[in-house]
């Protein structure tokens, strides 16, 4: 009598869905693909064809592709180094941010003691700590992990904190009348309710980590894509610079979509409510 929009999927419809979805998607993307082809054509014409743009700053697409292939060993290694640094740093910062945010959102003393730290240290951009980090840590790898951790720690902490502190009081009251103790209130009510906000923090933290990663690699670390760009620029090998930029763009956007996917899966209960 009170019908809702419950989806019912039959196995048959799921099987044919792949093709049904693939074709409209191709048609939708066709103008974009055409535009890309035209763009590359114009670029090729302006550089290799008519030589209108100054070299070596603007190499043609063929040169870049060639460099990407020729220098694949070093580029691959640089990518792996960047990824390793990013993964460890982001993980450390995120875990620290979740812990700090939960303490601040749930415990009065957590807010009292951590808020000044957050207010004071948080807004300082992580790269500003580079000189200090380089002297405090025995090697540039650990220093970079500290910097990356710091840059993701700040947004994750803030948004976890506000997410937990802002949990609808009624959820907590209902849970208490259902017999929930403090542990259950935190783990099974407050944290799940704060997840949408926590995910915003995870996105922002990742974005800031990218920035810090590249800066750190350009200034101190002797490996990674940031270092590669800096090094290639020193030799005026701009085709390499562009090649590394392309890899970076692909890598970072892939990582962001991975988090998007995770969020869509974990916050499936929100479907229809998420607006961003």
């Amino acid at each position: 009598m009170e019908a809702t929009s419950l989806k019912t999927k039959t196995p048959a419809s799921r099987k044919s869905r792949g093709w049904d979805k693939f074709f409209p998607r191709c048609r939708r993307l066709l103008p974009l693909i055409l535009a890309l082809v035209v763009l590359i054509g114009v670029w090729n014409l302006l550089t290799t064809g008519l030589r209108l743009l100054p070299l070596p700053y603007f190499p043609g697409p063929r040169e870049i592709l060639y460099e990407l292939w020729r220098d694949r060993g070093l580029l691959g290694l640089s990518t792996v180094y960047s990824l390793r640094l990013l993964a460890i740093g982001y993980l450390v910062g995120t875990l620290g941010g979740l812990a700090a945010g939960i303490l601040m959102g749930w415990f009065k003393w957590g807010e009292y003691w951590l808020q000044p730290l957050l207010r004071f240290i948080g807004p300082v951009p992580a790269p500003a700590w580079i000189p200090l980090a380089m002297t405090l840590f025995p090697n540039s790898f650990l220093a970079s992990i500290f910097l990356l951790g710091l840059s993701s720690w700040f947004p994750v902490t803030i948004l976890t904190w506000s997410g937990i502190a802002g949990v609808n009081k009624s959820y907590l009251e209902v849970a208490r009348t259902l017999g929930a103790g403090d542990r259950v209130l935190l783990l099974r009510v407050a944290i799940p309710a704060a997840l949408p906000s926590i995910f915003v923090g995870l996105f922002m933290g990742l974005g800031l980590s990218f920035a810090t990663l590249v800066v750190a690699e350009m200034l101190g670390v002797k490996a990674g894509l940031g270092w590669y760009i800096q090094w290639a620029q020193g030799w005026a090998e701009y085709d390499k610079v562009y090649g590394a930029l392309i890899i970076m763009a692909l890598l970072f956007s892939t990582l962001l979509s991975v988090i998007f996917r995770c969020r869509d899966r974990i916050l499936a209960w929100q479907r229809g409510l998420i607006k961003w």
Binding site: E173, V174, A175, G179, V189, Q270
Partner: peptide, 26 residues
């Protein structure tokens, strides 16, 4: 047991998950 004007169901749990919340919590 208490029921408010707003159902206050936990939006991250299914109907079933909401029902078993109490017994599981204890």
């Amino acid at each position: 047991g208490l029921v408010f004007q707003d159902p206050n169901l936990f939006p991250w749990l299914t109907v079933e998950g909401n029902l078993v919340f109490g017994p599981r919590a204890r």
